[in-house]
Design a protein around this nucleic acid. Structure first.
Lengths: 356, 356
DNA sequence: TATTTCCGTGTGTACGTCCACAAATATATT
DNA sequence: AATATATTTGTGGACGTACACACGGAAATA
């Protein structure tokens, strides 16, 4: 490999001092047009890449990152995203990163609104957003853009906003994949129950809408859209499910498949178990503790995993890359959709801590 | 977060100079028992973690890593492992890592032997091994252990050796998973052809043995072991396949599934296509370019992915962690087995470059 | 022309660790 | 006891970047 180029090499080539080169590189002004041009020419010729280790230590700054997502309990989807964030902060611990977490109730639009207002007020150096409600998110991102605060999305992207990057599944294709999985394990004359969590406020979660579209498109193409039955269920008040779901499966004995387009498939699995509904295959989303258990016991057949740990990690890494090293990270990041079943589930669990 | 502890803090607490603390930390001797104890006590009390950025720059050493694996062409399994290695070297480019690649013919034991001899002679600072033949690998690792050269495995672990770490699939469970996948998509009265690549020399690849065991155990448990038909095929000389496979599927019209326990499933897919054998589902291993194409065109139904890119990356990272920062990485690293099918394949391809 | 203001440029310091080397102390030898 | 030798300990330089600051000269103002 060629010898490393340092700032002093650029300076010598350009016929200026290292300080001037530094000003050019960091766009800090106070440079004459002639000097700037000379430095830029040298830069182009010599392929200078700063030593990131030394950059990091010389730039003695405290980075305040705000992470705002739905609330979570241990082992739930969002908790794994936060775990990835924490691991990144730990790995970059020579950087003095302060991480403030603000959570809202993802089933309550108004909670989201006030939490995002609070997040905006903090004037952090960077923000990680786990979005649920579109309009409230746009209010937040407008504020961030006005103040030149970089932000990234985890879990899902909100169209019409301009984040530094996003890290999410392709939810539409996820819906299609779920269609393939559930139809693969059910008899060909089966019908399918599509469960959807009820929310307070009048907006549905964006991810769910996209997945539903993917799923329904798949069903239309296969000519089985007619055999999809929609049903609501409650995550926050499971006692209401008796009323919401009722004797659905008794009325539809041909329904041999259930699809849950959120991470709460285990709630449905539990409902079916306690209500003595048998022979129904379930496909869900995310390897939460609850789903893990239901997969192990065979009550859920497949879940599609979204690599939440990696999303959190990469979100922090992207922000650091921008703030510390001035490099724009790759902006569109669709993570692979992992098909998780009894045989390979354990490896996804264990590996969460280890990834890079 | 608490204030960062530096070496000088330890030194003050222990009542010695920073130089002495450094000697204790790096086990460089020349320290009196009294001083050592005092420093160790301070270290235990204060939770000192060195600033890795500064460690990295102060330690001005050239690291010579040897990577020895089977030969590969672009888009094949091993090429993706090497891609991960290269990405790691690039990410750590402030570290002056020199990476020497030595490849052998994985279908020829003798080629492996001489390549490993060569690798041993180089006396590198660390070695990454992609093992195929057990005995030859042990000769190499014995030499490395004698010379205190850290080494890690990618793709598979060789029992009875003591690497710093390994990064591989759980091949046994991989075989079971393949069993689940192929039986899930074939009629219940189907039989299954188990294809295995022929090799020069008398040893089978370790990974294949493990996968076969997992697959057969699965079949025994399901009571379908009798319907497994074994067949050899050649990767290096595909023209021999006409002779090796012959009219196997004509003689076994009930055989509706084919399993390939190496990454060359596309060779079988191609054979079936050109010989007009239809209606046979194929499950294979690894998202190589060849398999990718066969998945896209529907000739292969599933492959199980082993995250080769990540294996290569993590191997380098583990060695660096050891050599530069003196930290022992996690040693047993079983990566998740990804179930890849038409719907999610693209995301695994694209994502290879991006991970972390 | 004398003085102030402003802009462009170079210089020097800090960051925390690693390690070479010098200094100091302990131990061995005559 | 004096000197030689071995062992332990402290000191200071180097790593390459970022940025504060000071200095010089040109332009602006009086």
């Amino acid at each position: 490999m060629a010898k490393k180029i340092r700032i002093s090499d650029i300076a010598r080539t350009a016929g200026v001092s290292p300080g001037t080169v530094d000003r050019v590189i960091h766009n800090r002004g106070r440079v004459s047009p002639a000097a700037r041009e000379s430095v830029e020419k040298a830069l182009a010729k010599l392929d200078y890449r700063p030593n990131i280790h030394i950059s990091a230590i010389s730039l003695r700054k405290k980075y305040r990152i705000v992470v705002t997502t739905p609330q979570f309990s241990a082992g739930e989807y969002w908790s794994i995203i936060h775990k990835g964030v924490q691991r990144a902060v730990r790995e970059f611990d020579s950087l003095d990163i302060e991480c403030k977490v603000l959570c809202y109730d993802q089933f309550d639009l108004f909670s989201c609104r006030s939490t995002f207002e609070q997040a905006a007020k903090l004037n952090a150096d960077a923000v990680i957003i786990g979005a649920t409600f579109r309009d409230e998110t746009v209010v937040l991102t407008n504020h961030l853009e006005d103040n030149n605060i970089p932000y990234v999305y985890v879990d899902s992207m909100v169209e019409g906003t301009y984040p530094l990057a996003f890290f999410s599944s392709d939810h539409y294709t996820c819906g299609r994949l779920i269609g393939k999985l559930i139809t693969g394990i059910c008899p060909s004359d089966s019908s399918f129950v599509l469960f959807q969590a009820v929310r307070t406020g009048d907006a549905s979660a964006n991810t769910t809408i996209l997945r539903k579209k993917g799923f329904m498109d798949f069903c239309h193409e296969k000519g089985i859209a007619e055999s999809v039955i929609r049903a609501p269920f409650s995550v926050t008040e499971p006692e209401k499910n008796k009323e919401l779901i009722g004797n659905l499966f008794a009325r539809h004995p041909e329904a041999k498949g259930a699809i849950v387009l959120s991470s709460r498939g285990n709630v449905i699995a539990e409902y079916l178990r306690t209500h003595g509904v048998g022979g129904v295959r379930i496909v869900g989303i995310d390897l939460t503790d609850g789903n893990m258990e239901a997969i192990g016991s065979g009550r859920i057949d497949f879940v599609v995993g979204q690599r939440p740990e990696q999303q959190g990690f990469m979100a922090v890494k992207a922000l650091i890359q921008k703030m510390v090293y001035g490099r724009a990270p790759k902006s569109e990041n669709y993570l692979p959709m992992d098909i998780i079943t009894r045989e390979n589930a354990a490896y996804y669990c264990e590996f969460a801590d280890t990834t890079i």
